[in-house]
Design a protein around this nucleic acid. Structure first.
Lengths: 363, 363
DNA sequence: AAGCGTTACTGTACCGGTACAGAGCACCAC
DNA sequence: GTGGTGCTCTGTACCGGTACAGTAACGCTT
């Protein structure tokens, strides 16, 4: 009957004060009823909550609370690449999933920060959050700059470590080294590398270490070269862009159809490796009899392939959990005024030998 | 030398007022310098910004701004399932990617709302946001309830439409009908269905429409039955849980190894279809000569398979774009005080015939 | 009866911005 | 000289909470 319940548009906003007036207590008591139940008697608390319910009050306004408390209940995640790309990469989505689930346990939501737009909007500068994970970003990108200027609790993941900031990485150099050593041990001497690059097309490059690449890309290259140069082997290197997916196929063909076909191929990821296996089959080559292929990541795909891929396993879920644990530790330290952790952790990896690698063909 | 520049811990917080005092203008002018550049002279503005920079001021505090302005620059996305699961589903990740990219253009960030936790934390209730997309959630789940109570601008996606709320859906019923009709037209008379279920294991069910399922699952079932019952065909139905991935393999074997092996199988998704093809090959059956398989979604996987899948294509990216456009329209309407759109849109789908379906075997 | 620790509630002072309605002033036309 | 218009800049009143230091009442010891 009353307008207040029907004409929502004109209904004045219900705040703590509205409820306080109705119950006849102070605003502070109503706040306590919601946020600090031990501060008032159960009887009064139920009365307050009932009145709040009556008035259609949902709970303390999150923005107001964020301002007063200085915390928002959400942490950000910066992925400088277009999010569209990040989501099509199974390594990234697995990581995101693990992060989101770990945050859920801590009662935090995850805000994906889109890179600074053209119209002057900069989520990294303008969105409220308690802390932020920076995943595979250029350490000097403008978005990272903003986050640092804001002095937000920050944890870098799969990134070039920066002193004074906590980082969670994977021992990619060691993993790549093990992968390369595996092929060397199997007698391979002509070994090519198919890895990530930022050019438009797949192409051989002469100075792989001089190429712009992300942290993981550099570390893996270093690892492969560690083992190969120690064995006196100079690999040919093809760089393929991540997108479109066909670029890796093209890179694989480059490697397999030229004059000096290798007997072993080291790949930046299982997806690249799948392209090599695919291309090899299309050319009538047998894997691993004619050519051995080693991937990276131990993507679910790796076991679905025929033959299943030899690869380097990284525990992406552990990476996500650790990233969240580190960030919450920084959050807590800042709150308590204790020194914030700034460790640089490198998670172990493991070579998983499956059917796609075998002894080098005799001849 | 001065403590202020080195001992960050004790450094008093820099606010608009700090800058105002230093420049000798009002706090409002400093605010304008950042947020409404046309409200002051260029000369003064540069002086203000320089002073701000000197003091290490990054920009208006997002929480304070959110409270004062009543908007946060972020929209939420609710996925009631564990986010970990949502991220392993390529349909969901493609959608998320499209949403995130569309939001980026609008300068908005995307906050993933984890479902209400056990320790009393409820992101759907406690996180500040301007609006929210609700994707594949039970319409009566507690999290959705909170969002509704907050009267947040809300758009449902792939959900049972609710009057008074805008929805973006896909014409799954029509798509499934077309898929089923395709098999009927090819002469198939024994047709089984492998679809999503929530039980622990894969199993035949007698009353598929009576089973609990999500909106898409129900619509697709209705569509298949539309065409099949019109043709006088009663399909057998197997329900398989989404996780673990092997459950679909089990469901596929159930269908292919029994006494009344069908000549055609309709599947909830391309992933399920891939399991059927896989199982068929393992049993020495040829696709499509012995058995036709039709998927759903037109996952990238569909063309990678041998034979490539006949499937129903839905344009997930368009769905993401439309969801964002709808939400921003609701946001704008609320801001302008104009009536909020409450349309229920159903995006078209398209049957894509490829190699996995063919004429029913003669016998 | 004085002293003291609890429990239950309250008052005040913020948190750091923005909206909006002026105010002062220069410039211009008439 | 007067009134109107535009450009800058300012003052005030919020936005909706929370932290913290009270205060009052009550029971319990000594």
């Amino acid at each position: 009957m009353s307008n207040a319940t029907t004409l929502d548009q004109t209904m004045a906003r219900v705040t703590l004060q509205t409820i306080a007036d109705k119950v006849g207590v102070s605003r502070m008591t109503v706040s306590n009823a919601f946020s600090r139940p031990d501060q008032l008697s159960d009887e009064l608390r139920t009365r307050v909550l009932a009145a709040a319910d009556d008035l259609g009050y949902v709970g303390p306004d999150p923005s107001a609370r964020a301002l007063a408390r200085g915390s928002t209940g959400a942490v950000g995640m910066l992925l400088t690449d277009s999010l569209g790309e990040a989501f099509t990469d199974s390594v990234a989505t697995t990581f995101l999933a693990s992060v989101a689930d770990s945050l859920a346990e801590a009662g935090l939501a995850l805000t994906l920060l889109t890179p600074a737009g053209t119209q002057g909007n900069v989520p990294a500068r303008d969105v409220a959050m308690d802390g932020v994970l920076v995943y595979v970003c250029e350490p000097d990108s403008p978005d990272v700059e903003w986050l640092r200027k804001r002095r937000l609790p920050l944890v870098g993941v799969d990134q070039t470590p920066v002193l004074g900031t906590a980082h969670v990485n994977v021992d990619d150099r060691q993993g790549a080294r093990a992968a390369a050593q595996h092929l060397v041990d199997l007698g391979h001497r002509r070994i090519d590398i198919l890895t990530l690059g930022y050019a438009d097309h797949s192409a051989f490059v002469d100075e792989p270490l001089a190429e712009r690449n992300n942290f993981a890309g550099r570390q893996r290259m270093l690892g492969w070269l560690d083992a190969l140069t120690a064995a006196g082997i100079t690999p040919r290197v093809v760089l393929s862009p991540f997108r479109p997916a066909e670029a890796a196929d093209e890179g694989a063909r480059l490697i397999l159809t030229g004059p000096d076909r290798p007997t072993g191929v080291l790949c930046f990821s299982d997806v690249y490796a799948a392209s090599v296996v695919h291309a090899a089959h299309a050319l009538g080559l047998r894997v691993p009899d004619d050519i051995s292929v080693v991937g990276y990541d131990d993507n679910p795909l790796a076991t679905r392939l025929d033959p299943p891929l030899t690869t380097v396993r990284q525990d992406i879920e552990a990476k996500g959990r650790l990233a969240v644990a580190t960030l919450t530790a920084v959050l807590k330290a800042r709150q308590d005024g204790t020194p914030e952790p700034t460790d640089h952790v490198s998670l172990p990896v493991e070579l998983v030998v499956r059917g796609s690698s075998g002894p080098a063909p005799q001849r």
